[in-house]
Simulated scan of single mutants.
Amino acid sequence: MHNRLLALPLVAGAAALALTGCATSSASGDASGDGTVRVVASTNVYGSIVEAIGGDHVSVTSILDDPSQDPHSFESSAKTQLAVSKADLLIENGGGYDDFMTTLADASSTKADTINVVKLSGLDKGGDAEFNEHVFYS
């Protein structure tokens, strides 16, 4: 239970650290050219967290922005692939929830840092039948 309460602050903290690192390198030549960190999040849940932390210093694209969208049947578009290729930071849920993020990142050969929330949270104990890949509910 205690680990679940720490998941959101861990994600927020990691995103803040990653954004700080990106902002430092961005000043000398980021993808946007204006010092704004380009972030692509697999869902609007994570996109909203980044927007709340980064404010005007981030430009966020949330790939799945409708709660009724099924991440397992998601099909990317050229626009989505382009956003991933130009991103400074990628945020994925991980745990099999949004495997399309790995596919998009691999196809674009992006150099963006990636935050995998499942790995960061420590909630997946490997083979645990009780593990719920929807860590954003934690």
Score class of each variant (00 low, 15 high):
residue 99 D to R: 06
residue 95 G to W: 07
residue 10 L to T: 10
residue 82 L to I: 14
residue 38 R to M: 13
residue 138 S to L: 03
residue 22 C to E: 11
residue 136 F to W: 10
residue 110 T to N: 03
residue 50 V to D: 02
residue 66 D to N: 13
residue 75 E to V: 14
residue 91 I to K: 01
residue 113 D to F: 03
residue 100 F to T: 04
residue 3 N to W: 14
residue 33 G to I: 01
residue 51 E to P: 15
residue 39 V to N: 01
residue 13 G to D: 08
residue 24 T to K: 08
residue 82 L to N: 12
residue 125 K to L: 08
residue 6 L to H: 07
residue 62 S to I: 10
residue 132 N to I: 01
residue 39 V to R: 01
residue 31 A to Y: 04
residue 84 V to C: 12
residue 44 N to Q: 07
residue 1 M to G: 13
residue 15 A to C: 13
residue 64 L to P: 10
residue 22 C to T: 02
residue 130 E to S: 11
residue 96 G to Y: 06
residue 66 D to A: 08
residue 119 K to Q: 11
residue 25 S to T: 04
residue 38 R to P: 08
residue 137 Y to P: 03
residue 99 D to I: 04
residue 79 K to G: 12
residue 58 V to C: 06
residue 24 T to M: 01
residue 116 N to I: 11
residue 46 Y to R: 00
residue 35 G to C: 09
residue 79 K to Y: 12
residue 70 D to Y: 09
residue 95 G to V: 09
residue 6 L to G: 03
residue 7 A to M: 13
residue 110 T to E: 00
residue 96 G to F: 05
residue 60 V to P: 03
residue 34 D to T: 15
residue 116 N to L: 08
residue 14 A to T: 14
residue 43 T to G: 06
residue 88 D to N: 14
residue 123 L to E: 02
residue 36 T to S: 15
residue 73 S to N: 15
residue 56 D to G: 14
residue 11 V to R: 01
residue 109 S to A: 12
residue 93 N to I: 11
residue 38 R to T: 08
residue 117 V to A: 04
residue 71 P to G: 07
residue 30 D to R: 01
residue 54 G to Y: 07
residue 23 A to M: 14
residue 127 G to W: 05
residue 109 S to D: 14
residue 33 G to M: 09
residue 25 S to W: 02
residue 52 A to P: 07
residue 86 K to T: 07
residue 10 L to H: 10
residue 63 I to V: 13
residue 76 S to Y: 08
residue 22 C to K: 01
residue 81 Q to W: 13
residue 107 A to C: 13
residue 99 D to G: 11
residue 98 D to E: 06
residue 69 Q to K: 06
residue 66 D to W: 03
residue 103 T to M: 09
residue 128 D to S: 13
residue 116 N to P: 14
residue 51 E to A: 15
residue 116 N to S: 15
residue 86 K to F: 06
residue 41 A to F: 05
residue 137 Y to A: 09
residue 121 S to M: 09
residue 96 G to R: 04
residue 99 D to V: 12
residue 70 D to M: 09
residue 100 F to C: 03
residue 74 F to P: 14
residue 110 T to V: 06
residue 80 T to L: 04
residue 83 A to M: 00
residue 24 T to F: 07
residue 6 L to A: 07
residue 103 T to H: 08
residue 128 D to Y: 13
residue 60 V to M: 04
residue 102 T to W: 05
residue 90 L to F: 01
residue 116 N to F: 12
residue 78 A to F: 08
residue 59 S to Q: 10
residue 68 S to V: 13
residue 117 V to K: 06
residue 65 D to P: 10
residue 75 E to K: 10
residue 113 D to K: 02
residue 114 T to E: 02
residue 56 D to S: 15
residue 129 A to N: 07
residue 109 S to L: 10
residue 20 T to F: 05
residue 99 D to T: 04
residue 132 N to Q: 14
residue 88 D to I: 09
residue 15 A to V: 15
residue 102 T to K: 04
residue 92 E to G: 02
residue 2 H to E: 10
residue 68 S to Y: 14
residue 39 V to L: 10
residue 129 A to I: 05
residue 107 A to T: 11
residue 90 L to V: 00
residue 10 L to Q: 11
residue 98 D to G: 00
residue 50 V to F: 02
residue 61 T to V: 13
residue 24 T to W: 02
residue 37 V to H: 00
residue 78 A to P: 14
residue 132 N to R: 06
residue 46 Y to G: 01
residue 30 D to K: 05
residue 42 S to Q: 03
